[in-house]
Design a binder for these strands. Sequence first.
DNA 1: CTGGGGTCCT
DNA 2: AGGACCC
Length: 733
Amino acid sequence: MDTDEEGEDDCDISADLLDASACASRRAGGARDRVILHFDLDCYYAQVEMIRNPALRTKPLGVQQKYIIVTCNYLARELGVTKLMSLKEALERCPQLVIVKGEDLTCYREMSYRVTELLMSYCPLVERLGFDENFVDATELVENRLKDTDISSLSFVGHIYKHDALAVDVQEHARLALGSIIAAEMREALWSRLGLTSCAGIASSKLMAKLVSGTFKPNQQTALLPQSTAELMGSLAGPCKVPGIGYRTGEKLKALGVLSVRALQVAPLFELASEFGEATAKRIQNLAYGIDPSPVTPAGPPQSLSDEDSFRKISTVMEVEGKVRELLSCLMERMRKDGRLPQTLRLTLRRSTALNRWFCRESRQCPIPHHTAHRVVTGCSDAVPQLVSIAMKLFHRLVDVGEGFHLTLLNVCFTNLQAKGSDRNSISSYLTHTPPTAAHTSTQGQDMVGGLSPNGPSSRTQTRTVAGVKDTHKRKELFPHTALSSSFSSPPSSSSEPLGQKSLPQAVQAHTPVPPWRPILEHSDEKRVDPGDSRRASVLEERKGPDLPPHVDPDVFGALPEHIQMELLASFQTGGSVPEDSTEAQGSAHTSRFAEQLTVHPNREGGSRHRESSVSHSNHSMAHNDDFSTEHAQNEELCREGQRSEERHAMEDAAGVPVAQTSHPDIPPNVDPCVFSQLPPDMQAELLADWKQRRPTLKVPSKLATKHSAARAGKPAAKGSQSNSLLKYFKPS
DNA sequence: CTGGGGTCCT
DNA sequence: AGGACCC
């Protein structure tokens, strides 16, 4: 009933809005502006790694996947490391970079869903984008709060794009201001409950919320006044910087001579339409104006689960089978925890073709026999060989092994996931295979969070109770690694929290906050740790998790709903029974920390009320005055871990050609610009021609702009009654 | 030598 | 089955 607030019947609003778009207060029909929040976790993988191992907080940290540093913390960024930089260049720029491997996404995935889940406890309208971003449609939340808010005492939290927060007429933007307050509360919850810092953007569409959320980068939030829409759009470097306009579309636009967002705005529609079709043409042109009517579409459980690995070379059937088995057994475990039945198996591979591998993947898929699927979900061990056998058949449909082959990637994917048990039945079916210890802990499903009432739409409150019960039991299955299994050593050295926190200047503390409690993520790849290395082993122990008083059974604790866990942890702390981290726990002073952290900003100067641009980049000066030298030995240790692996040849590339490496717009994404730039011009031209030829016609950019209208109507009914709630993923019913 | 995931559309 | 998009 409540799922759709904003009717998006107005498909053809473009003409109406183009001229009026900058106008905030067209409140014609009864349609009011939405209040959309966009949350973006700071350097996500790096943050998770720093939570797992707090010793990393004070070091420049990069997360490595194969030969790439996929992300890095802000210390590393100050030293010249960027996202998606090659390992080689990262180490050239920052020899002291500490590297952790991040190819196993388990921890990132788990924490990601906890984030979404937490946001959903405020308001069900949450849409995920990747692992580290979420949209929230807070319109209803705002509307409800508006009722009992004294509008004259209202003020914005955080920045306001290109405005002085103190000079803005809050009355005029009361709903946006409330949005900023709610965003701040949610960010505070992400911090206090999960230990994660984030950025947020507050605007009236997904597009603008996302764009504005990045304007003040680590751990800050920014609201966009409607009248600043054009300025923000105009500030973008090019059309492909508009979310929803990707690389391919950007290239096509270039070919049309459309090189800027402004050019896209004023491009004759018919020209765009001849290239992209009318619908797409209108859509991307609207995007250029900052117009994005696409709704926040609540995420359900994932539509597919996949696992993949890339490598230099696999060229025998035996190797393929070994890799496929490895991938499938991991994937099966995930599938089993999910609980749904996979009905389709897809095998994808990438071949190494002589000159290039243009990211061409080929795939074959087939149905999974019911009995096999059922074994997957029940964890029956002979499901794996059955799946492997199926996958190998798919493989042989893809590859004629007689010819010889050279693969560089294999992917296995379960799709067409069927929720078993239509609705209520599954509760009992679930309970039957649930750990008995948790059974008595069932509670009513109170999902109040942080004192915020869980949303107005009053939507599915009756299923919530059920959901709460299910949560009690399901948590352990979903996040088995987060369930506090058996042994806990209290983080001995982290009471030390030592040089790190206390000796740092305040500005640094603001950027390297220490959560009130440490979320627990079990180290999923401990096999990588050299057992003979005592130092690293001790580092490992530090990340075990929060202390539980000895009388608390970790398994029981782990089976509790998260918010109950939180409350218990808080009570442990206030009860003074927690020896560790007493410095950070500072009482359970969430509140003071909240005020301190959110009403102003990390770099606030002297507690003044400056919330604005004055504050913007002062953080870049901060880390340089720190003395990290004492940690040098350990850094080397950790660095060696990163390098030791078979990837050495990555380092022995051509000389340091000065060409920039990231996101080169003019050459194929898999071509090293350094190498490319050294080719003779005619060869460059040939490569480019060949490359461009490969892509036929442009497809419609999707996501942000495309989902309105019929969007999700045709989806499989697998989700049962609560088709817009992620909760059922955690507490499937 | 640019990961390891995801989404939806055609 | 592949292609576009997102991170």
